[in-house]
Design a protein around this nucleic acid. Structure first.
Lengths: 160, 160
DNA sequence: GCATATATTTCAACGTGCAAAGCATATTTT
DNA sequence: AAAATATGCTTTGCACGTTGAAATATATGC
């Protein structure tokens, strides 16, 4: 019983960490974690459509629109009609957006990645299997991934 | 690298599961996960003040007020002025609230608890330490627990 | 040309969360 | 006891993320 408690509390802490990170980020960089995630996506491949973003983040297109609105309003992103398919609108990052991306304070994932990289091989393996186990335990059965906490930036984090 | 990916994806899945659970719950029970958590708290100890709830859930009192408003509006909770300190307002659960509590569809935690209970001892131990490790890795350093996913109902879940 | 697909945005609504201001009541100081 | 201060709660007003439905524009197939 005590163990279950400990597990659930740990999960709470994980959730809590993502929350706190979002606020921290907003203060420091002017964007929330979710907005930052959009910035990352359009930063990785120098243009993306709303649809693509919505698929990758698993939110509706309407959500993406409002998110992008905010980035545009802060001059971190730009919209531009596609030449090839004029229904589409290519969203890309601005110079200021790249700055924000670069100067963002230690994103949650990077924090994780750094510490993970420092672990022993067997420890890493254990962590992986445990996390997967927990995820499987919580998953109703189905539906995979989620919004904010994402994977895209791992390469950067490890690249230097 | 692959391992980091796997970890982050697992964490995403955990987050996602809590999201999905909240929607499922709302459809089935008419309350969201957060509101349900309030219900659990006032159900455990047959009266609580707004302050207590806010401390336990780590949200502001204002938030608690609005949460309780919703429960009261649905006749799941009641407010009553304290006799001893008339600044205080005791919030307690109604019969209907208890029903909701009892009939809530397999809360996330119970799902977890059932499967956890079925695990081998060593597996449980491993899971505990892994989760704690991850939580520690994500924690900036500081601040402990979080709102929604809580612990209070474990006893019930294990009691039968 | 017309019907249907797709891409996006707009709109209205909800739930969560907070800070600040206000109100009522306790407690402490003087 | 009166005044100052602290505490507990609600109200108000705002920000954010999220969505479904309706509206608009454009593509594509026939």
């Amino acid at each position: 019983m005590d163990r279950v408690d400990t597990c659930l509390i740990a999960i709470r802490r994980i959730l809590r960490a993502t929350e706190l990170y979002s606020r921290e980020l907003k203060l420091a960089a002017g964007v929330t974690a979710v907005q930052f995630r959009v910035l990352q996506i359009i930063g990785e491949r120098d243009h993306a459509t709303a649809k693509e973003i919505s698929v990758q983040m698993r939110v509706s297109q309407a959500t993406v629109t409002s998110l992008v609105d905010k980035l545009v309003r802060q001059d971190l992103a730009m919209r531009e009609k596609s030449e090839t398919d004029r229904r589409q609108i290519n969203i890309h990052i601005t110079a200021k957006g790249r700055e924000t991306l670069a100067e963002a304070p230690d994103p949650l994932q990077q924090r994780f990645v750094r510490k993970f990289a420092a672990m022993e091989d067997w420890e890493q393996a254990m962590l992986v299997s445990s996390l997967e186990r927990v995820a499987a335990m919580l998953d109703a059965e189905d539906l995979d991934a989620s919004p904010v906490l994402d994977t895209g930036d791992i390469k950067h984090a490890l690249d230097h």
